[in-house]
Design a protein around this nucleic acid. Structure first.
Length: 576
RNA sequence: CGGGGCGUAGCGUAGUGGCUAGCGCGCCUGCUUUGGGAGCAGGAGACCGCGAGUUCGAAUCUCGCCGCCCCGACCA
């Protein structure tokens, strides 16, 4: 039983000055967490109980899916991370340190290497597969900018799992198992979430989805179709390709366009000199990029910006991507800044990618590759060709859903889980093979799956609170029932004590406010702030032989007879 | 890493060159009070982020450092 009279808890009346988002403010005010350094928090008793409740749910769901729990150290040697090149690639986000002998060590930001090596060390046959193993571990990432309290910390707890299969079909099945386990896990945590397509990145072709908990303070932006439920990370949003049914355009026509380096100025000139009705979307924007030192041109409709993140996500294998700089223009004298068109790109040795909206047969107004001149009727397939299509243009609310053509909305969310078909990258780097039926060595294929356990505490708090405090789902809350004794006589306190004991003996988890010196107002405010799902008040109504039962979420209050109160309370609590 | 802001008691804050650094919450003692953050009286608690400098005198001005928050870049 949690007794308020002795609990290590001091609630705060004022919001902490360094907190911005609701979960941060409330978790600090209600005495769940305290900041130790930027992005590093300690858990007070209430916070740690809540954290462990979540951890327990995660563990139960993993176990019941048949995954096996293991545990690695957080402190790791450099060598495995050297072999996968991540010692360098992880950059400044990796916490590095040296031991007394001067050996490089690190604090694990994620454990693909260690899991891969564990399987390599124990198993050697296809008969041992498939297997999925997981751990619940503290991770360390020296984030450039920790933020939003415990939503994005430098030390955090993550459940990470890895599946190992002999072939792609097996991986697909393991992935599906994890996906289902995550669905029941997040349902149990009481989180609202969307499963969103993500970009799988450098490995290509593999499947990846994120579990996003919608929340206005979330740092991920995603696209959601209100009609069919299609959801995608902005990077992974697929453009609905328009049908092109226009008449073939007349031959290209070059025209003078002085002082029109921007789309807006070009449209203005067109409307002034070539009749009205021109819009940015009739023009073709040529954005020049350097991808690992190679010049590429991205074609997008003039009214859209290029989203570099989308380009990068859809150009597998490219490590450095940046906009053209003046130096780069000097290397390509045929390119006239502000007047670039795709017509001569081939002869200039530039790779051209087009947004899917630039369909074959469509014609555009674009740069003439001559200073102060543009050209119209430039037709894809007649006047220029592209090396490929790429999702490059910025995504906007109102863009059409690729599944059902309904305008999509853009929303923000916290990433609470990520499932990912990793493939053979780590198995190859660390030489994880097993013998197949024919006695031949085959590289194992892997999946990786993560749940932010500490982040889930904050995500639930974000989604489940009101102006006066937290409102936990029952399984997550520090207690099922928060009993408040009020009054100055012994009777309410003795009655509350007995009620608490009776409830506890029937399996309820109880928090009891047995403070004799605190006023009723303080106790009510604290109970509401702390956010247990049910509050029982033992006080005024005692003269009628009753106690009051309140539902924290709905605000509903009922009086129940003290005689039989235990059963009544249990039935209300468990019905929720 | 770029831009902006902040650092005074456990928490929230006032104080822009001058006497013993002020207030609210919280904490301690006593009396009263007990269904919505009680009242009165008394009290404890501050190297004013750290270090240098300017000055007769620095929380206050200058420089350096450290820390924290926000926006952006970054984020398996």
């Amino acid at each position: 039983m949690l007794r308020m009279s002795t609990l290590l808890l001091r609630t705060l009346r004022d919001d902490p000055a360094d907190a911005e988002v609701a979960s941060h403010k409330l978790l600090v005010r209600a005495g769940y967490v305290r900041r130790i350094a930027a992005g590093i928090y300690s858990w007070l008793p209430l916070g740690y109980i809540t954290f462990r409740n979540i951890e327990k749910i995660v563990r139960e769901e993993m176990d019941s899916a048949g995954f096996q729990e293991v545990h690695f150290p957080a402190l790791l040697p450099r060598e495995p991370y050297e072999r996968t090149k991540r010692w360098e690639e992880y950059g400044g986000s990796l916490f590095r340190l040296k031991d007394r002998r001067g050996n490089d060590m690190l604090l694990g930001p994620t454990h693909e290497e260690m899991f891969t090596l564990m399987i390599k060390g124990e198993f050697a046959s296809y008969k041992d597969l498939p297997i999925s193993i997981y751990q619940i571990q503290t991770k360390y990432r020296d984030e450039a900018r920790p933020r939003s309290g415990i939503i994005r910390g430098r030390e955090f707890v993550m459940k990470d799992s890895y599946s190992f299969d002999i072939d792609d079909d097996g991986l697909a099945k393991s992935y599906e198992n994890h996906r289902n386990a995550y669905i029941s896990l997040f349902d149990r945590l009481g989180l609202k979430y969307n499963i969103v397509s993500a970009v799988s990145g450098a490995m290509g072709g593999s499947r990846s989805e994120e579990f996003l908990a919608p929340c206005s303070t979330g740092e991920d932006t995603y696209v959601l179709c209100p009609k069919c439920g299609y959801a995608a990370n902005v990077e992974a949003m697929v453009t609905k390709v328009p049908e092109y049914s226009g008449e073939p355009a007349p031959a290209m026509k070059v025209f003078d366009s002085p002082n029109t380096p921007t789309i807006d100025s070009l449209v203005e000139l067109l409307n002034a000199n070539h009749g009205g009705g021109f819009e940015g979307s009739h023009t073709l924007k040529n954005v020049l990029l350097m991808a690992d030192g190679k010049a590429i041109s991205i074609l997008v409709p003039g009214d859209r910006e290029v989203d570099l993140k989308r380009v990068e996500a859809n150009l597998p294998g490219v490590e450095e991507l940046r906009l053209f700089e003046d130096e780069d223009f000097k290397k390509f004298p045929g390119l006239v800044k502000g007047y670039v068109g795709p017509q001569d790109a081939k002869s200039q040795g530039i790779t051209v990618y087009a947004d899917p909206r630039i369909v074959k047969g469509s014609h555009w107004i674009t740069g003439a590759n001559i200073r102060e001149k543009h050209v119209m009727y430039v037709t894809h397939g007649r006047d220029f060709e592209v090396d490929g299509f790429i999702e490059a243009a910025e995504v906007r609310a109102g863009d059409l859903c690729p599944e059902c053509a309904t305008p999509v909305v853009i929303d923000r969310a916290i990433e609470i889980g990520h499932i990912f078909q990793l493939g053979r990258k780590y198995a190859e780097a660390l030489d994880l093979t097993v013998l197949d039926k024919d006695g031949k060595a085959r590289v194992v294929t892997m999946g990786s799956y993560g749940v932010g356990v500490s982040r889930a505490v904050a995500a639930i708090a974000e989604q489940s609170h009101d102006e006066i405090g937290l409102i936990w789902p029952r399984e997550v809350a520090p207690a099922d029932v928060h009993i408040v004794a009020t009054g100055k006589d012994d009777l309410p306190f003795d009655t509350a004590e007995k009620l608490a004991n009776d409830l506890e003996s029937k399996g309820m988890r109880v928090m009891l406010d047995d403070r004799r010196d605190a006023s009723p107002g303080v106790k009510f405010k604290d109970a509401e702030l702390i956010g247990n799902p049910f509050i029982v008040i033992v006080g005024k109504a005692l003269v009628e032989g009753k106690v009051e039962l309140r539902n924290r979420r709905s605000g509903e209050k009922v009086e129940v007879a003290l005689d039989g109160a235990v059963e009544e309370i249990i039935s209300v609590v468990t019905a929720n």
